[in-house]
Design a binder for these strands. Structure first.
Lengths: 247, 247
DNA sequence: CAAATAGTGTCTGTAAGACACTATCAG
DNA sequence: CTGATAGTGTCTTACAGACACTATTTG
């Protein structure tokens, strides 16, 4: 023990991170996609203890050497599981308690991703033996998810459904080019109710986050539909009214 | 190494949390209050390394023995610093990176609290030598805050200002009994602009989260004002329109 | 009475909802 | 032509903003 007051530099030289207990800290992802008008969540079967063999959210520990920050960890996990490089990713919420993991006090930074699942090949990486897209409707009855992951998915779903009412979020579930009817169907699939076409289109056009792709139309046995793409840098637009009165 | 596949129980018996690196994980609080119509944040002067002597958000490590979950840690910190037992508390966001703390990879669960500061005696607990309420306007120019706390306060302020536009959040900055004029002043202080009295009162009454306190009025040299209190269990009401058009 | 703040009524503008209407393709 | 889906126009409704008006106290 030095007689003088120690400097910050001396303090750091003698500092040992494991001199006191810290919780087990991880990052987990709730990855949503849309397949056949049905909202689905990606789950992986755990290949390791604890909860080996049970289904869980993709995620894992922070790589202290390679991940510069939490977003980097989340992005890496997303890439490892789905191969997807670009998508909508936001932090959902932290979950931490003494009892959520049998190994002891643990905390997780849960993320929330929306991807277009067309052409996504699910990888079976280390630590997970299988992966599958599970319709959110089938999750209600399931008690077999690992840790508190069922609860995390619930919170993610609430957030998604809330944001759909007043933001442009759902575009991220579509491929780069889509029609306004496609987009309307996404809103309807998540909300679980029909929305008025005229009101919907007025709202979207006013939001001004899409641009027509000149000359590109989708043809069917009907009037061709204009194709749109997301305008550069407009990943999330807030409308100033919710989509339907709550009262 | 057992020849058979190990069971979950065996796995847990041999598990050592420090067999691999985990980040230093903490909980920090952005505690807002209103004094003289001015929004302020609680800062404490750090009494220990690192960043000894600099101002920082109140917070610290999770007590793995006593805190059952993250909310409990946040509530405990709030109580230790302010003595306040009941207030509005929500999780803000996680912040984590390799560089935010000189001790190494660290992550924090940032919380967001609103309290009525009347009668709050700031305690000078262990690890902090002084505490003070700093007006948010004075933070813009300050470069001397510890860690990434200036950035965390920025995010908290954005969240607060956004939510004021479409929720009943500001009631939590007032004492239990208040007039509608008091409440309007809080909205105006946070938004930094005047709001129309008639529109404001219609909106609040329709939200139906306040109740008149029968017979209780505040008297001055003018018409007395009805006192209101928050209705039981109505800690946060969402309006279905933002307060002012964003476009 | 005046001064001050509490509280209401009335008009207007904006955007959502309902829904009927027109447009444009394949076959 | 029909059937199908794309896309628009018109009327109504809900509610925020502006702002003038009334109400009730102290002194």
């Amino acid at each position: 023990m030095p007689a003088h007051e120690i400097t910050e530099q001396e303090f750091l030289q003698n500092y040992r991170i494991h001199d006191f207990d810290v919780p087990l800290t991880s990052v987990d992802l709730v990855i949503f996609t849309l397949q056949e008008q049905c909202l689905k969540v990606l789950l992986v079967e755990r290949g390791e203890h604890p909860h080996k063999g049970r289904w869980a959210l993709p995620g894992g520990f922070i790589d202290l050497k390679r991940d510069t920050d939490l977003d980097a960890t989340a992005m890496r996990k997303l890439r490892e599981k789905t191969g997807v490089e670009i998508s909508y990713l936001e932090q959902l919420q932290g979950f931490g308690s003494a009892t959520r993991d049998p190994r002891g006090w643990s905390a997780t930074f849960a993320y929330f991703a929306l991807i277009d699942a067309q052409g996504v090949a699910l990888s079976h990486g280390a630590g997970s033996s299988a992966a599958s897209w599970v319709p959110v409707g089938e999750l209600a009855g399931r008690r077999d998810l690992a840790f508190d992951h069922a609860g995390i998915i619930d919170v993610a779903l609430q957030r998604l459904r809330a944001k759909v009412e007043y933001t442009s979020l759902p575009v991220h579930l579509l491929a780069a080019e889509f029609t306004l009817s496609d987009l309307q169907q996404v809103y309807e699939a998540i909300l679980g109710r029909a929305v008025d076409k005229s009101a919907f289109r007025k709202r979207i056009k006013e939001g001004d986050f899409l641009e027509e792709i000149a000359g590109r139309q989708r043809h069917g046995s009907n009037r061709p539909a204009q194709l749109y793409r997301l305008r550069e840098g407009q990943s999330l637009v807030y409308f100033n009214r919710a989509m339907s009165p709550l009262r």
